[in-house]
């Protein structure tokens, strides 16, 4: 118990120190790196709370893809924060203190940390999710059955949010435009120097790529048994492409996955998910009721439904993340 508390306290201290340092930094590259550290520590805290799926997502999204995207943005804009006058910072300080005060006030009546008799634990929901789901859905990882089946609509909604984000980036940065017909020299990657000139980076990233992609597939299809699932798999898959694009240049990455194909994949995943919902309705169930997929054997139906849903999520998330990166990076090249 004491060791557990100690680790928690140390991690929290690192978290606070990181956050304070970020606010004091003016150089945004450093801030981006520290933000990644912040996510990493958060992920560790999630692990301590036994929330492995959440930790996995935090690590993949917070540390991985969002850091890369922020760096992509910084390559296009200034990388130093403009200094706000001290006087103009006061309203912000007041707002922060107010929110912090409210949260502190809220924590006074929260159930004790790790209490076994908290409302969340005593609600019948917990019993249903943790025990009955084993028969009703038949999947060892409860998180996956809650996300993909019990609360399948929320997950669909989150996928739509990811899709909308991709749509927003594409509509503003517009990689749908035609590529320029001739380009005399090979376009430089977004960094000022050519990463592919470094042999170590070239060999290591080239060698890693197949394993990254394989690991993504493992995370995708193993989500029913262990931590993981479509979101994490999609992000890892996209990281593979982003790594390739960073090192070998945008052109070669886009030769692997052309824009048109990528853009079709973005919609494909979403269409499969909504289509599955429509199909279950046509088969006589309600929206996203996977039981009807295998009449007479609900668990098989649930299994099938969850697999389809996770794959759909993986496809859309991976292609949206790759699209977003290509949009930012392509912007840098065409400048």
């Amino acid at each position: 118990m004491t060791a557990f508390s100690l680790i928690n306290i140390v991690l929290l201290a690192i978290l606070v120190a990181t956050a304070v340092t970020i606010t004091r930094l003016r150089a945004l590259y450093e801030a981006a790196m520290l933000a990644a550290l912040f996510s990493l520590v958060t992920a560790c805290l999630f692990v301590l709370l036994d929330a492995l799926d959440v930790a996995f997502t935090e690590a993949a999204v917070g540390v991985g893809i969002s850091t890369v995207l922020i760096l992509g943005v910084l390559a296009l804009t200034r990388s130093r924060e403009a200094v706000t006058q001290r006087r103009r910072r006061l309203p912000g300080v007041a707002a922060v203190l107010l929110v912090g005060g409210t949260l502190g006030y809220a924590s006074l009546d929260l159930p004790a940390f790790g209490a076994a008799d908290s409302p969340v634990h005593s609600h019948p929901l917990t019993e249903v999710y943790l025990h009955q789901s084993q028969e009703a859905v038949g999947i060892p990882n409860t998180v996956t059955s809650v996300l993909a089946s019990y609360r399948g609509l929320d997950t669909l909604g989150e996928l739509v949010v990811v899709f909308t984000a991709g749509l927003a980036v594409v509509s503003l940065l517009g990689p749908l435009r035609r590529r320029r017909p001739t380009r005399p020299e090979r376009p430089r990657p977004i960094a000022d120097f050519d990463l592919a000139d470094y042999r170590v980076i070239r060999v290591v990233s080239g060698g890693l790529l197949p394993f990254v992609l394989l690991f993504a597939l493992y995370v995708l299809f193993h989500g029913e048994y262990g931590p993981g699932g479509g979101f994490q798999a999609g992000v890892i898959f996209a990281s593979g492409f982003v790594l390739y694009g960073l090192v070998f240049g945008l052109d070669r990455a886009q030769r692997v996955v052309p824009h048109a194909a990528l853009w079709s994949l973005v919609t494909l995943g979403l269409l499969v998910y909504i289509g599955l919902g429509m199909a279950t309705m046509l088969l006589g169930g309600s929206f996203l009721d996977y039981d009807v997929l295998a009449p007479g054997n609900p668990a098989t139906g649930q299994h099938l439904g969850i697999l389809v849903v996770e794959t759909a999520i993986g496809i859309t998330v991976a292609s949206v993340m790759t699209t977003i990166f290509f949009s930012f990076a392509g912007r840098g090249v065409s400048r």
Binding site: T267, I274, F287
Partner: peptide
Amino acid sequence: GQLPVLQVAAPLLCAPLCVLL
């Protein structure tokens, strides 16, 4: 009986189709 979900699913389905076509 499916009307409540169709209410939302119809526009939701049309969004990716707009992008795809």
